[in-house]
Amino acid sequence: MPGEAAPVVDGCCQGTSANGHTPRKGVALTSLTSGQVGVICETCTEPGDAMLLRAMGLRPNATIRVCRLGEPCIVEVIPSRAGEGTQCSRVDCRCRIGLAYLLAQRVMVAVEAS
């Protein structure tokens, strides 16, 4: 149905992925706590939304920090530096993105040990 995203089962996406990556196990962004850092595995939304989120910086392997949970869910995107894997400079290019809770539920994140 339009407007409804794919279901989330056991922390993994069971739906359309616009980025071509193989979905890997993660937890929904909304299950993180405020201040927690994670790495995006997958966005399990409609292709259009997934493309937009990716273009906004919420792309696979991007590191995010949860600034606020709830409605909206606010994350800070900290892009990975080339050659550094998921490690990133804490003082680098970053932007804040607000997500409706429904959308944030569909962003799967691997929690990074702080």
Partner: peptide, 13 residues
């Protein structure tokens, strides 16, 4: 008629 897109918005500084 069209999908009601869940809101995703960049929050400027």
């Amino acid at each position: 008629r069209g999908p009601a897109r869940p809101m995703a918005l960049e929050l400027p500084t």
